[in-house]
Design a protein around this nucleic acid. Structure first.
Length: 989
RNA sequence: GGGCGCGUAGCUCAGCGGAAGAGCACUACCUUGACAUGGUAGGGGUCACAGGUUCGAUCCCUGUCGCGCCCACCA
């Protein structure tokens, strides 16, 4: 028995439990062992995160695909899991420590701190998973993985070591993007360019060889001048030709630096002379290499000036009072130092001018602080080498992007890819498996034992072990091994994410799952992580597995706020999907996201849409109730092809049409089209017309027609539940179960569905606070009480439903989630379509004219068909009862001319008259007819313009021309009918 | 500077070569025995602008104007 009111909250948790109990989403279910596998890996959310709108969209689309393919019989593995999210998670925990005034990360030490992070992971790690379950994500939750699992960690080590051995991972000293707040290097992708209004400072550097001459450089970063090692001008810049080869004397420092010619210098920018600071600028670094300039790092890791005791800085600089003054800036923050230096330059009279200047400044995407190009040793992946195959794979179509235009973005980035800096100076993550010997020699191995063994072998052959500063050279007396120090750094989180499609399937073990499900089928993700993740999975998948990780990459839009801005906590414009689920149900949210997921466009989410689709779920609910109340129950073995009633043949025809639209929509990743198709079918076809037209039969006397109609109502309902299930899994599963129990009541050979049994118990056991607030409590309480009484008379099956039974005709032995997707050959029926189409058009026309002429809705009018053809006459007689009911008629008759005072309308070229002398307003009626006639005239004019064009007749395809001719005939006939009608109206006056 | 995308009904968006569509909002009527989270009917759009291709353009091409995003760039 279906509850009177649709309350999503009541249903959802119960249905989730039923799926879980039946292990409905487990991959490799026994009955599907021979089925074709279908695999998706979830984009792993941050383990300590919570569900946001992007997740909701991303996972809704994946779930639609998975449920669809599962119903089509595939052996589906939707692989779930979470990501350790190195920087983000470490930051959260550090903030907690600060807030609780507990010892800082450094105070407590690495081991204790990591314990602390694991504890936080244990505490909050379930949140996102539960939220995904609330959304209805049909992942195989028994296979949940975490990027720092033992297995996945082993995969990370294995890949790192193998890349190192292949020379694709290496250590290098070069400039990196350094985050002075987080004290770690970050990759290019983690740097955000932010427009900043700053200044350009013009500084005069005296030229040593030419008294009173100077060269002016412009800079946005005066503080880095302390590390200048040259001034560069363009080789062809005549203004500075005489300076090249001479030297400038660095103000405030006194260092003598060469003036060099390099075409990096752009005569258009600044003064055309640019200061070169190789240790603090990526471009200058390259210039410095070309000219063998010293690299003078004048900052420490936290972004403070590092001067005193800095041998590189002091080398070759003469003692002076000026220098002594500058050395006082040691330890001062870079931005404070900037001000001081500018003031001192001004005091020294070398500050030529200051201009306002807007430019892009790199910021860390996590910390928000200004990134410092910084000279350090880091680990890199030779991305360029790996990218070659990843580019080829997309070029030759082994992997395709949907929509296709993202391939261009992918290529563009891949083709100019830079070395990927993978080391992070963090603690939370996969520690790099590299050990250093006393002489700095690196040993990379999966285990410490192996590294030690390699070191022993190495040092056995090496007589000389050169001591290096600060390192203890003694051999470990216990183990008699060289003293090795493990690299403290961890790997970029995306390194482990890049392995996700195979590491989650058990690699490096050769597991059954790996063989069966790799390569996976589709990756569904947002365009914002094409570079971070998709590109790197392509590289790693091809390198490690030698096969693309997925055949298709479906790129969906970003969910934005109603103004189109990216949702972010800092902007405060976040809509919490959980709030929407609470308010309207997960099904409504899912349907909204699917309906709005048109390719190539961002989603600006409007709450009203969600509400509208909640109403849609309610509509479905009530349609099912209607069916139930009218004894419409699935008839085992019912074959819709055997239907004889035209109405039933028509709805079967329409069902086929809807099935095709929905199927093709999902297959083409056109989720919005699929959603729109099922929406239209359910509401505008099944509810608005089929059920309305079926009412006279269902309310009429028993007999063959009624039995057939009942069976058909239930059959179409079931097809609808299937079609809608990928979009709205909860309400459909619920209705599937509940209607099954109705079937049982109806003495059909249906199996009672345990789901609905449990449901009664659950909703009685703990009525939710919400339910009692709705006001419909009393109604639903009554119906619950009734159904409870009924149910308690039935036997309660103790076991969960036998799963996986294909449900061959017999009731609901299976969950809807495991039912078969509709495949309905042989149901098209053009005759039924034509006939019911005629009925619908007639009813619509009558309703329209009734409203326009202000006929009270309760009034029952007679209808006269004027000069009806034989077929129209037959149809009218056959459908009289139906038309009368829906158009509120008293009777239908036939005549050659309309009665006096009748309103006349034209429907499919025939005149229909409604004698309503008592309601008719002659002037208004004339106006109405004239307007209709004008419409016909406009149509004729438009068509004539085309048909009068010889080029059109000559060049347009035959059927188009023919179509125009038909339109003209139709419009002409319409014009005539209205002309006649107007003529007759004159007779009335 | 390089690239991508968007300007269609009041709002949020589909459609993308042969007579302008949906949801929400709006107007009128309807407590009809599934549903007022509903029903019926209706109003509302020179599809940003200008050229071009075509028998035909909201749809293809070019340009202009607005808007957004990505990448690069600290003189």
């Amino acid at each position: 028995m279906i509850e009177k009111t649709y309350q999503p909250a009541d249903i959802e948790s119960r249905i989730s439990a039923a799926w879980e109990a039946a292990q409905a989403f487990r991959a490799g279910r026994p009955e599907r062992r021979d089925a074709k596998p279908y695999c998706l890996v979830i984009p792993p959310p941050n383990v300590t995160g919570s569900l946001h709108m992007g997740h909701a969209l991303n996972n809704t689309l994946q779930d639609i695909l998975c449920r669809f393919e599962r119903m089509r019989g595939r052996d589906v593995l939707w692989q779930p899991g979470t990501d350790h999210a190195g920087i983000a998670t470490q930051m959260v925990v550090e903030r907690q420590l600060l807030e609780r005034q507990q010892p800082s990360r450094r105070d407590m030490g690495r081991e204790k701190f990591l314990e602390r992070v694991w504890a936080w992971k244990a505490e909050s790690g379930g949140t996102i998973v539960n939220q995904l379950k609330r959304l209805g994500a049909s992942c195989d939750w028994s296979r949940e993985r975490f990027t720092m699992d033992e297995g996945l960690s082993r995969a990370v080590l294995r890949v790192f070591v193998s890349l190192y051995n292949d020379g694709l991972v290496y250590r290098d000293k070069r400039l990196v993007n350094w985050d002075p707040t987080l004290l770690t290097a970050i990759s290019d992708l983690e740097v955000q360019q932010v427009e900043v209004r700053g200044h350009l400072w013009y500084i005069r550097y005296p030229v040593e060889e030419l008294p009173d001459a100077y060269i002016t450089v412009a800079t946005t970063r005066p503080e880095t001048m302390l590390g200048d090692t040259a001034v560069a001008v363009h080789p062809e810049d005549e203004r500075y030709a005489e300076f090249v080869g001479r030297h400038a004397v660095l103000p405030l420092v006194g260092r003598r630096i060469p003036i060099i010619a390099d075409d990096y210098s752009d005569p258009e920018k600044g003064t055309g002379a640019v200061k070169i600071t190789p240790a603090h600028d990526f471009n200058d670094f390259e210039v410095g290499r070309r000219h063998h300039l010293a690299q003078i790092n004048v900052l420490d890791t936290e972004g403070n000036l590092d001067l005193a005791g800095n041998s590189a800085f002091l080398e070759g600089v003469p003692q002076s009072a000026e220098l002594d003054e500058t050395l006082k800036l040691h330890g001062v923050d870079r931005f404070i130092a900037r001000k001081t230096i500018v003031a001192r330059l001004e005091a020294a009279g070398v500050l030529e001018k200051i201009e306002p200047h807007t430019h892009m400044v790199p910021h860390g995407d996590r910390s928000g602080t200004v990134i410092e190009p910084f000279l350090t040793d880091q680990w890199y992946v030779d991305a360029k080498a790996l990218a070659v195959h990843a580019i080829d794979a997309v070029r030759d179509g082994r992997t395709v992007f949907v929509p296709k235009n993202w391939e261009k973005t992918y290529f563009e980035w891949m083709e100019k890819i830079q070395p990927w800096c993978i080391s992070r100076q963090l603690w939370w993550g996969h520690q790099i498996p590299a050990w250093y010997g006393p002489d700095g020699k690196v040993f990379v191995a999966e285990t410490e034992e192996e590294a030690v063994a390699r070191a022993l072998a190495y040092y056995a052959e090496t007589e000389m072990i050169t001591p290096i500063e600060g390192r203890d050279m003694a051999l470990d007396p216990e183990r008699r091994t060289p003293f090795l120090i493990r690299d403290e750094d961890v790997l970029d989180t995306w390194f482990s994410s890049a392995l996700w499609p195979f590491s989650t399937l058990g690699w490096p073990e050769e597991t059954e799952e790996l063989k069966r499900y790799y390569p996976t089928d589709v990756l569904v993700t947002g365009f914002d992580i094409i570079f971070f993740w998709v590109a790197r999975m392509m590289m790693m998948g091809l390198h490690v597995m030698e096969k693309v990780p997925f055949h298709t990459v479906y790129i969906h839009a970003l969910v934005r706020d109603e103004r189109g801005a990216k949702m972010s906590k800092s902007k405060g414009n976040v809509i919490d999907p959980l709030d929407l689920i609470d308010a309207y149900g997960a099904d409504a949210l899912r349907f909204t996201l699917a309906a709005m997921a048109a390719q190539g466009r961002d989603i600006k989410l409007a709450k009203s849409r969600v509400e509208g689709y909640r109403n849609f779920a309610t509509k479905l609910w009530n349609a099912c109730r209607f069916a139930e109340m009218n004894g419409c129950a699935a008839v085992p073995g019912f074959d819709p092809r055997s239907a004889t009633e035209t109405l039933n043949r028509w709805i079967a025809h329409e069902t086929v049409h809807a099935v095709r639209e929905v199927t093709e929509g999902i297959e083409a990743y056109r989720f919005n089209d699929a959603a729109a198709a099922v929406y239209r079918f359910v509401w505008n076809v099944y509810c608005d017309w089929y059920l309305e037209l079926a009412k006279p039969v269902l309310l009429g006397p028993d007999g063959a027609a009624k039995a057939e109609t009942r069976a058909m109502v239930a059959w179409v309902r079931d097809e609808i539940l299937k079609l809608l299930h990928p979009f709205m899994p909860f309400v459909t599963e619920e209705l599937w179960a509940v209607t099954a129990s109705a079937d049982a009541d109806g003495a059909m050979e249906a199996t009672p569905a345990p789901v609905s049994q449990k449901k009664g118990a659950a909703s009685r056991a703990k009525p939710s606070g919400k339910a009692s607030k709705t006001g419909s409590r009393s109604a639903s309480a009554k119906s619950t009480a009734k159904s409870t009484a009924k149910r308690s008379a039935e036997s309660e099956p103790a076991d969960p439903p036998p799963s996986g039974n294909g449900g061959a005709g017999a009731g609901r032995a299976t969950l809807l989630a495991l039912a078969s997707w509709p495949d309905l050959p042989g149901l098209e029926n053009a005759d039924a379509e034509a006939e019911i189409g005629w009925v619908i058009d007639l009813i619509t026309a009558i309703r329209s004219v009734r409203t326009e002429t202000n006929v009270p809705s309760a009034a029952q009018l007679p209808l006269v068909l004027i000069g009806a053809s034989a077929s129209s006459r037959e149809r009218a007689e056959r459908w009289a009862e139906f038309i009368n009911r829906l158009a509120r008629l008293s009777a239908i008759s036939f005549a050659d001319t309309p009665p006096r005072g009748a309103v006349q309308l034209v429907m499919r070229g025939e005149v229909v008259a409604l004698p309503l002398a008592e309601f008719i307003d002659i002037p208004a009626e004339r106006a109405r007819l004239t307007k209709e006639q004008a419409k016909a005239d406009a149509d004729i004019a438009r068509v004539d313009a085309k048909l009068g064009n010889p080029d059109f007749l000559a060049r347009a395809p035959e059927e188009v021309v023919e179509g125009e001719r038909e339109k003209r005939e139709e419009a002409l006939a319409r014009h005539e009918k209205f002309a006649e009608a107007l003529e007759r109206l004159k007779g009335v006056e």
